[in-house]
Amino acid sequence: MIYPAAGSMLYMLLELITAFLFGGLLLGLHRKIIARIQGRPGPPIVQHLIHTFKFYIKELTIPETSSMPLYVAIVLALSAVWVLAFLVGPVLLGPFSIIIMCYAVHKVSEHGIGLASGSPYTKMGSTRAVLSATAEMPLIVAPALVFFKTHTLVLSDIINYQILHGSLFMDLPLAAIATFILLLSKTPFNPFGIVWGKDIVSGYKTEHFGVIRGVMMFGEILGFFVLLWCFLTIFFGGIFNTPLTIMLTMIGVTIILGFICALTPMIAPYHSVMIQWIFALLALINVLFI
């Protein structure tokens, strides 16, 4: 088999397509597991991908109240940010700080998506997005601990360190748990998902349907893949460092996430923020073990 040269455009594009399809299947699996635990047959595993493609052929209506270029541009920014994170992370093994930046901008676009349509529900969702931006706390704790331990934040060096010295999970278990909570807060139907809670219809996504919802789902699928990959690579990089092992472990982690999401209720906004803070502070205790 002839490979395109690593780092060429075709290579990256193929990786992007693979990650998109695989991430879509993972989210479908996630939904299926939740349904099974709750005693329903549940949708087929491809349902999430079918949804994404379905939205591409649905009619797009833009609310008259919306703030116009922003309404479209912010959704494009959301998926562009995850494309960048995917290229820097799994494909090029570049600096981890760029992925942190991408996560931060993702929070900004969540906020912007909610604000731009002018609907009270999306406004509520975006207010909650600002509130839950406190979940950025594990994001500062985990890289800090990794940096103090390995003295680098470049992903390829972190992987090399782990191959030599064993996985970081052994040294930083609490930071790994905090990162896992961060990952959990980005999966659908999670207990911390106050931004798209059903008490406010669909949170910040309420007014977005048609093609623009398809683009949004594309970004979210990539984001799920990237966050899973980051969690596995940073804390288990010594064990899982080939595509096959990473993909199989991703399926395993998705099953665990499905169990958690199915068995926990949605938490009230302030409690959700408080619980995420508690896990971040627990991760800070990890400093004592370094």
């Binding site: 397509i17 693979t18 399809l21 087929p44």
Partner: peptide, 21 residues
Amino acid sequence: MPYFDYLPHIVLFTVGTLIGL
């Protein structure tokens, strides 16, 4: 090793599920 080694697996699996449905 790149991820798109498994692109045929994923694509064929997806196609299979769609046909099955």
